[in-house]
């Protein structure tokens, strides 16, 4: 079958690949481009581990066809740190011990980033709602909720 060209911006750099038609964005990112920060958990949209940001919106990369992302701007967790400095969400996840095995963490951070991009000062209910599509085996969620609220408090301090 003929390969399909796909081009998009990933974490600020241009990417172009020839892929099989029907390739998921998750597969293209991990196995074609080599960005393994989105994780393949269930491959059916129930766990949230593969979450990435496409043109500002949270997307499950396991249910997104790569060829629908032509021209898109994509952000993954591996693109958040700048110049070796962790993104405030990454810092907060460390500080609140919000990660254990780490498999859900990139998806959680993506979901939290989209929340904070739209709602810089969220309530606890906002955070719970934003994370409700992501599941975690280890932490019991509370440390993750606290991490997002901690990062959000940093937002309000920067604004003040």
């Amino acid at each position: 079958m003929a390969k399909v060209p796909v081009q998009f911006t990933l974490n600020g750099s241009e990417k172009a690949e020839f892929i099989d038609s029907g390739t998921t964005l998750l597969h293209a990112l991990r196995d074609k481009i080599g960005d393994t920060s989105p994780k393949g958990g269930c491959h059916q949209g129930t766990c949230g581990a593969c979450s990435v940001i496409v043109d500002g919106e949270l997307r499950l990369s396991c249910l997104t066809l790569a060829e629908t992302c032509n021209g898109a701007t994509i952000t993954t967790t591996s693109g958040l740190a700048e110049g070796g400095v962790l993104h405030p969400l990454q810092r907060a996840f460390l500080d609140t011990f919000a990660t254990q095995c780490g498999f859900c963490t990139p998806g959680m951070i993506m979901a939290a980033k989209v929340l904070l991009d739209h709602t810089p000062n969220p309530s606890r209910e906002d955070v719970v709602e934003a994370l409700s599509g992501n599941i975690c085996r280890c932490t019991g969620y509370e440390p993750i909720i606290q991490a997002v609220l901690t990062a959000a408090r940093g937002n309000s301090q920067n604004a003040a």
């Binding site: 059916q44 129930t46 719970v128 994370l131 992501n134 085996r137 019991g140 969620y141 993750i144």
Partner: peptide, 17 residues
């Protein structure tokens, strides 16, 4: 067989701990 049927509480189902 998957996370639709194998149930786990999510972040909205936490007890005060």
């Amino acid at each position: 067989t998957d996370f639709n049927q194998y149930l786990m509480p999510g972040p909205g189902d936490l007890a005060e701990t």
